[in-house]
Design a protein around this nucleic acid. Structure first.
Lengths: 241, 241
DNA sequence: TAAACTGTGTGGTCTGACCACACCGACGAC
DNA sequence: GTCGTCGGTGTGGTCAGACCACACAGTTTA
């Protein structure tokens, strides 16, 4: 009749309601697990299942011990949860890699165009300093890590946390594919040099205020890399021993 | 030294590895909780915490009982997890409502432009039949529900599951705000009529193959609604008794 | 004064015990 | 033979209780 909700959902909904009503805010401590258990009339294990979900979603941080830094604290870090979600969805083929790349294309092009059109134009100092760091001799893995960070700084400059978090998730979900791609390229130094040129071009386009060409530069930058590396649609139909 | 991972992370990582290596695919059954517990050398409660995460993320479905439909089954439904994540992030003010709306703007405009430019053009029959259903007299809540579905069918027509899932999540995260907005409008019937006109306009723009105006039509459609409804940046700084 | 020690409460984990449920096979009535 | 019925069995869902390692705070001690 009443369609009994599961015990952990009761906990999750109670916490969500407290968040929406402002009884809980970022930085606040959640009641202890034993207290929540008693308050809500569920077992402690059910409370823990709900807390685990919140933790993976990036909403809380937990620490052992006592004192002001212990317990479950609301943090609301958008990035972590998005990465976990997308990584697992890609792993389970719920998300096609191709769709992830296309979505990246849409979001990053829009961000670049937006940055170019904004006034006052946000500072790109963080992005530029990353580019400088990438000039040195780096392994493919190191380069890709900085490359990812560079793209994230652009999203960050737009000030839109949703886009930033989504892009971080998209990126991390195909991180392993990007690494494979780097290994499949004829000459990595040449590719890296081209990517760097394109990065500079993107920055220039943004700083010159040319929305259309900034968006186009990002688009061809990303699409070009994935085309060059012959991106797999799915991988590993064969198993290791 | 070894930085012991937490027990539930061991479970999560084991399952993710099985997914990536193809040992687990959508439709497969996970081993029973007791079996996983024994195999991985962790307690059953830790296994359950990991499974709960996977369930909320939309990766598995669990059912009690025995037989082929029982147990934990890989489903990889992208929508549910995205909605939960974004809803909670908005509730915890990790995501600003304004950023959610802007992101919707970017994604939906891109989808419309993409649909208009695609060849062969995907069928919009599902979208159109929803529009027809919306012509009848409806309450604001009913209208908004169909409206949300209409926008989703457009994303669905693009065939990009990542964008579809993301849009569904964005939408659900601000669903309550959209309802509040409908109540704040001077004349809801007038607003609804306008929204319907704009919907038809979007469909027409897509079907005429005009990418630019399709994107622009979606952009002004969404931006207009949120502007008209005087969207709150945050809400409920005051509490009920 | 400063260092060591103990008390206490936290999350993290495991174990064992139930429950409701859904299947499935054996058994019996017809 | 066929068709109900009726336990047996294994599943997830939940709870209770017990430890542990840890971090802090207050007290005791050198």
């Amino acid at each position: 009749m009443t369609d009994e909700p599961r015990a952990w959902q009761v906990v999750l909904e109670a916490i969500e309601r407290d968040l929406l009503d402002g009884r809980l805010r970022p930085g606040d401590h959640l009641p202890g697990e034993r207290a929540l258990s008693a308050d809500l009339g569920v077992g402690r294990s059910s409370v823990r299942e709900a807390l685990r979900v919140l933790e993976v979603l990036g909403l809380i941080r937990t620490s052992t011990g006592s004192g002001p830094n212990s317990g479950a604290i609301i943090v609301a870090l958008p990035g972590g949860g998005m990465s976990a979600l997308m990584r697992l969805q890609v792993a389970a083929t719920g998300f096609a890699v191709e769709d992830v790349v296309k979505t990246r294309l849409v979001l990053e092009s829009a961000v670049a165009a937006d940055l170019a059109g904004a006034s006052p134009r946000p500072s790109l100092a963080a992005s530029v300093s990353l580019l400088d760091a990438m000039e040195s001799e780096l392994s493919a893995a190191e380069f890709l890590a900085l490359d990812a960070e560079f793209h994230l700084t652009l999203a960050d400059a737009s000030g839109n946390q949703v886009i930033t978090a989504t892009m971080a998730g998209l990126r991390s979900s195909i991180e392993s594919y990007a690494r494979l791609g780097a290994a499949s390229v004829p000459s990595w130094p040449d590719t890296a040099a081209r990517l760097m040129r394109e990065h500079r071009g993107i920055i220039n386009a943004i700083e010159s205020g040319d929305s259309a060409s900034a968006g186009a530069a990002v688009h061809s930058h990303i699409a070009g890399y994935y085309a060059e590396t012959n991106f797999p649609t799915h991988r590993l139909d064969d198993m290791p021993a």
